[in-house]
Amino acid sequence: MERIKSYYQDFNVFANEDHWDDHTREIVRKRLEPTGSLQKLTGEQVDMLRNIASLLLDDGRSSLLDWVIKHIDNKLQSDIGEAQRKVGVPPFATLLKGGLYALNELAQGENGSPFTALTPEQQTSLLVALENNTVTLTAEDGQPIPPKDFFNNLLSEVVSAHYSHPQVWSEIGYAGPAYPRGYVRLEVGLSDPWEARMSKEGPER
């Protein structure tokens, strides 16, 4: 996979995987598996989500987006609770599916084409409108979808998945799982030999 420019051109978190415990290794490895067939998301929803996620993350690399989509599909399959849901906000699945439907309608209404056919600039301005609660969204069945909650819930899942990907860990110089080994050198200026080393070239600005 192509790498973004960062301080840590040479670091690969997986080089340390022999030092991870089995449970953690199994969890992290799963993120690299091919997506397989999705259970809950339709092709249209996936296309929209890939567009949205690449803008939220400013990162359109395909294999990273695969994992984001898989994570959202997993979440839709799970019957574990949502920890919290604001009064007046529909459950996650309704919020997500209703929100995507309504966003597409909005794109059609304002720009005359589906969301995925818009330019990134047009897409971004719609996302900003969601964030600022300056549009009205209505699901297919007429249920109102609160725009900002739709935006924030989606943002939360997309960002959590992306920053759980080992490729991203490598790029930002995060050493990742550290059990049983742990760290010996903690103080300013010190690092253990297996941690990421800054390369001369810095990140793109």
Partner: peptide, 24 residues
């Protein structure tokens, strides 16, 4: 701890009480 915990943020959200509470 050996088989249920992991060095991973996303996976270990399970340690929290995940049943939905309404917030207001």
């Amino acid at each position: 701890p050996q088989s249920d915990f992991a060095s991973d943020e996303l996976a270990m959200a399970t340690l929290g009480w995940q049943d939905t509470r309404l917030t207001d």
